[in-house]
Amino acid sequence: MSETAKWYVIHTYSGYENKVANNIETAVENQNLRDLIEEVCVPTEKVLELRDDGKEREVERKIFPGYVLVKMILTDDSWYVIRNIRGVTGFVGPGSKPVPLSEKEVAALGVEKIHVEVNYKEGDSVRVVSGPLEGFSGVVDAVDIERNIVTITVSMFGRDNQVELALNQVAAV
């Protein structure tokens, strides 16, 4: 089947996402399958919600209600364990064949944090190495490792412009 762990999408009953994720984690621990099923994720986002009384509160919402993401090596055992968890209706894919997410889809979902080590800091000169501004040079204003973003000031058309780029899009000069 597959030798490296890939991300798969599991369809669940709506509202059962966290319960399914916890049950998968429990089954993995009980059956000693940590080498097959590495990670379980229910993608969420924090949203400011305006209540009727005019107050704002921060709420955590599921990005994909009814779905759970699992990073696993697909074998008959791992498929069987996941498929037989209460609340799981099946894997996303044609028929009963699970289809892994592509690397592009995983990056877009942000489920796998990519740690980029940077060799620059605020005030350093950098060069843009990829993207639409490739070839431009600028000065680092801020580095946000958690969000994977660097803010730089680039001089274009005789004006200084602040732009946000991914950490791996710039390199120290």
Rank of each mutant, 00 (worst) to 15 (best):
M1I: 13
A5I: 08
W7I: 14
V9G: 04
H11T: 13
H11C: 06
T12A: 09
Y13N: 11
G15S: 08
Y16F: 06
A21S: 09
N23S: 09
N23E: 02
I24A: 04
T26F: 09
T26M: 05
V28Y: 01
Q31C: 03
Q31M: 00
N32M: 05
L36D: 03
I37K: 00
E38V: 07
V40A: 03
C41K: 15
V42E: 00
P43E: 05
V47C: 08
L48E: 14
E49V: 15
E49D: 13
R51W: 13
R51C: 13
R51I: 15
D52P: 02
D52Y: 05
E58F: 11
E60F: 05
K62C: 11
Y67L: 15
V68P: 01
V68E: 03
V68I: 03
L69N: 01
K71L: 01
K71R: 10
M72I: 05
T75Q: 05
D76L: 08
D77Y: 04
W79V: 07
N84Q: 10
R86N: 15
R86T: 10
T89I: 09
F91R: 02
G95N: 11
S96C: 11
K97C: 06
K97R: 10
V99E: 14
P100D: 07
P100S: 05
P100Y: 04
A108C: 01
L109C: 02
G110E: 03
I114F: 12
I114Q: 13
V116G: 08
V118D: 00
V118R: 03
N119I: 10
N119V: 10
Y120I: 15
K121D: 14
E122R: 09
E122N: 06
E122T: 11
G123R: 07
D124W: 12
V126S: 02
R127T: 08
V129S: 04
P132N: 15
P132I: 15
L133H: 10
F136G: 04
V139W: 13
V140Y: 14
A142H: 11
A142W: 07
D144M: 10
D144H: 10
I145E: 04
E146L: 13
R147H: 10
R147M: 02
R147S: 09
R147Y: 02
I149M: 02
I152L: 07
I152S: 01
V154S: 09
V154D: 06
M156Y: 12
F157Y: 13
R159P: 03
D160N: 15
Q162L: 14
L167H: 01
N168W: 08
Q169R: 05
Q169L: 04
A172G: 06
